[in-house]
Simulated assay, not measured.
Amino acid sequence: MSSTQRSVATELSFALNAAANRMVRLHKPFLEPLGLTFSQYLVTLELLNGSPRSVSDLCERLDMETGTLTPLLKRLEAAGVITRTRDAVDERRVLIDLTASARGMEDELRSITDKIRTACQLTPEDLQELHRTLEGLARPAIS
């Protein structure tokens, strides 16, 4: 790899890191009143898309390790956002579900995406293109 290619790769890493940090900062004023961190918000959104879910399913979908997700789930449970129960069919599995109060925040939680899109001055088309690009980086095709 030439020094120019290394420089572009390094600059891409810095740009991705800066963008990720900006996203967390942009979400903060919308999440603080709800008592959620950015990571907790992502878990909650995923559960709004379908629950109950197993811990392993959430780990896979959110691309998190069990050691990262488990403490986060414990904090969400203590805050009354989720419940954790053993699967009646397979007691090795823990199922995560949203509480009624968390489901009551659904409209507010889902509206945050539009607020972030507006803050970033992205059209719906821009947002779709960015999402495809980021998904491609996060989950490259297996060759």
Rank of each mutant, 00 (worst) to 15 (best):
E91V: 11
A138N: 09
R61P: 04
V81Y: 00
R117V: 11
R86D: 08
Y41I: 00
P29V: 05
L47W: 04
L26E: 07
I82P: 10
F38K: 06
L137K: 03
P29C: 00
E65R: 15
A141S: 09
R110G: 09
L127Y: 13
E108W: 01
E125C: 02
M23N: 15
T99C: 06
R92W: 08
F38T: 01
P71G: 10
L36R: 07
I116D: 04
N17T: 14
K115G: 00
L16H: 05
G50P: 09
V81W: 02
D107W: 04
D107E: 10
S111Q: 11
A78G: 06
H131W: 12
F30K: 05
P71V: 08
M23S: 15
P52F: 02
L122N: 01
A9L: 14
I142T: 13
L42V: 11
P29N: 00
L73P: 07
R103A: 00
T123D: 07
L31R: 10
S101W: 01
T68E: 15
E65H: 13
L137E: 03
R139W: 07
M64D: 01
A119W: 01
E125R: 06
R22N: 10
A138R: 14
A15M: 01
E32M: 06
V43F: 00
Q40I: 01
L127R: 12
L36H: 08
L72R: 11
R53C: 02
P124M: 07
R84G: 09
A79D: 15
S13E: 15
L109W: 02
R110A: 12
H131F: 14
T70G: 00
R75I: 08
G50S: 11
L76T: 03
R6C: 08
R22P: 00
S101R: 10
P33Y: 02
Q121R: 14
A18D: 15
A18S: 10
L26C: 08
S56P: 08
D57S: 14
A78R: 14
Q121D: 13
G67H: 12
V55K: 08
Q121I: 01
P71S: 06
S101H: 05
T44V: 15
E32R: 15
L34P: 05
L42F: 06
T70F: 05
A79V: 03
A15T: 13
L134D: 02
V89D: 15
R22D: 11
D97E: 13
L36S: 09
L98D: 03
D97T: 12
T68Q: 14
P71F: 11
K28H: 13
E46A: 13
I116K: 01
I82S: 03
A78K: 14
D90V: 09
E77C: 07
D87V: 04
A119P: 03
K28A: 14
S143T: 12
